[in-house]
Design a protein around this nucleic acid. Structure first.
Lengths: 136, 136
DNA sequence: TTTGGTGCAAAGGCTTTGCAGAAAG
DNA sequence: CTTTCTGCAAAGCCTTTGCACCAAA
């Protein structure tokens, strides 16, 4: 975690700006390629470090929606996601967050609940026939 | 994926038996250590391969509940999970799966929905004071 | 037999980290 | 100035894979 104050470096500003431009929930590597168009000398390590810092501070969200890579969301508000089982694309789902569900869960466990995640898996419009039609 | 027929090898049977013994959602490495007590010569690669095959065939579930390692669940029925933000422990949550939520989501997207996952994050009884008291 | 499975070790893929120099405040 | 940040490269960690031998059916 990061205890000190954050500096507004060029790298940090551009990473955040690029992430906020899109709704595609890019991976760290995606962001690296996006940012590189404006800052060709930036390193992948810097992108990882900044994404970590920004999400630790609640400025962005780090998503773990399945797959091998983490994804990032420039929208820090609570919302749900849907992922394509075929191409991996992740979209926002504008379903109002269910507040009651945490109370219901609280009654069934001894955990102190902090938050919940709801993720849908399906086939996106481009992959719609199912897995076969989606492989190339 | 696996198209051929499955053989009932000693390794496969014991991996499945050990996984079904527990409700702790072990990682591949956890299982490796569990199985090694009965089959000392088994390799970690075999554990990974079998867990993959078993989950591809719907006999077990592979979980991606956050953190760096995947976890495995010997209970193939649909159910939700709760993870401790401090120690990483994952418990089952016996909240009845919400069937309606997939219909609601379907109206908001062009995806063909296959399934959904609901995961809670909190502090487990052992870590209950929050993150500070939980670090050793 | 035939064909899928195993053990071993190496390779892979994503992410983190040590370090010396650069830059923000 | 002081402290954080950056670029680079190496290291780390989890998982997958190639290969020769083994074993289930």
């Amino acid at each position: 975690m990061n205890e000190g104050k954050l500096r507004l470096t060029k790298q940090r500003q551009i990473i955040l700006a690029e992430l906020r431009k899109v709704t595609s929930h890019p991976t760290a590597d995606d962001l690296y390629n996006m940012v590189r168009q404006r800052l060709p000398k930036i390193s992948l390590g810097t992108v990882y470090r900044n994404l970590e810092i920004l999400s630790d501070n609640g400025i962005i969200q780090k998503l773990d929606v399945g797959g091998t890579q983490k994804r990032f969301d420039g929208n820090a508000e609570r919302h749900y996601h849907i992922r394509c089982a075929s191409c991996g694309r992740v979209d926002d789902l504008h379903l109002p967050p269910d507040e009651n569900v945490e109370d219901k869960a609280a009654k069934l466990t001894n955990f102190k609940i902090i938050r919940h995640h709801l993720e849908f898996v399906g086939y996106c419009p481009s992959c719609n026939g199912g897995p076969k039609s989606a492989r190339f």
